[in-house]
Design a binder for these strands. Structure first.
Lengths: 164, 164
DNA sequence: AAAAATGGACGAATTTTATTCGGTTATGGT
DNA sequence: ACCATAACCGAATAAAATTCGTCCATTTTT
């Protein structure tokens, strides 16, 4: 499937507004509603569109604490990595987890109702590998820029297939 | 506005599937479509729902490099903070930015087409504060857990208003 | 305690949208 | 140039969203 100009526009628009009507989307990309719908469906089927989610405003919902944690494993075995990844995956408050190269092994984003409960999660992660893990917690003071999608303009600027 | 059981369910469902039809959503929360729609609209108006976005599968879209960067300012003045925040906000490849307490001042998530272009962004950030900033880059090897919404179950477990 | 007022909820009617399908045009490969 | 494939369009149909009048239940006021 080709990621032509139209498909990029579709992705870009849906990334910013997942609930746009198919008709309005068709207008924006200058296609008929039926063709547009076909493309969207294909993009979903091919897995380019993974999901559609509502972005909630956490502060309006409840008081909470967000923490970015850096994690280093003293024993960098495959088993230790797996064990830790699995734990992160299973703890709902860990909303994001990356394995990285460099001074740390993982970055986590964790959201808890308060510090006390954050501490409980921290302890749980520490206990996992019985002291063989180093976790540094960094409380988020301000979200300067929340994630709002990928910079498609910058990422997809390959040369477009010119017409014949 | 009350965040009762029904509104929580609505938020929870929409967080996982922003494109569910209002009718299906109404079914799930045991309301009539019209009442359900009223609630969703109110949740949008009150700002509890910020946006709806399509979640794209980056690896399927293009090759790219994701980096988590830790940032420390040597001069922790308000001006330096503002300057850096503004820069992060204006660079499209910086998809996320948090101000934190502790050993670092900022965490960034940056997505670039390749290392070379990541390096250019890194340089741009370094130049901003003329050496008065320390940036450590951590290349993401694996996304163990992508963000897929907040753990509402854990965050919103206050006692529900019981009926009379 | 009764009356009034508020806030949802419901269901039917209407408008808008999604979806399907046949026919047509463009595209790519040989 | 030909065939095969893919993509488009537009009209018809099905489904969904939206509106609106009415009806309760809860709360406030008197």
């Amino acid at each position: 499937m080709t990621l032509d100009r139209i498909n990029r526009k579709i992705l870009s628009v849906l990334q910013q507004n997942a609930r746009i009507t198919n008709q309005a989307l068709a207008d924006k990309v200058s296609l008929s509603p039926s063709s547009c719908l076909n493309r969207v469906k294909k993009l979903e089927e091919e897995g380019l569109i993974d999901a559609y989610m509502a972005v909630l405003d956490l502060p309006s919902l409840c008081r909470s604490v967000t923490v970015i944690a850096t994690v280093s494993l003293k024993d960098q075995s495959t088993e230790a990595f797996k064990l830790f990844s699995k734990a992160a995956d299973e703890i709902p408050e860990v909303v994001e987890c990356y394995t990285v190269s460099g001074a740390f092994d993982f970055f986590l984003r964790i959201i808890a109702p308060d510090m006390q409960r954050y501490n409980a999660i921290n302890d749980r992660l520490l206990d996992l590998l019985a002291g063989q893990v180093n976790i540094s917690s960094h409380v988020v003071l301000e979200t300067g820029k929340p994630f709002r999608g990928y910079p498609l303009e910058q990422l997809l600027d390959e040369i477009k297939p010119a017409k014949k």
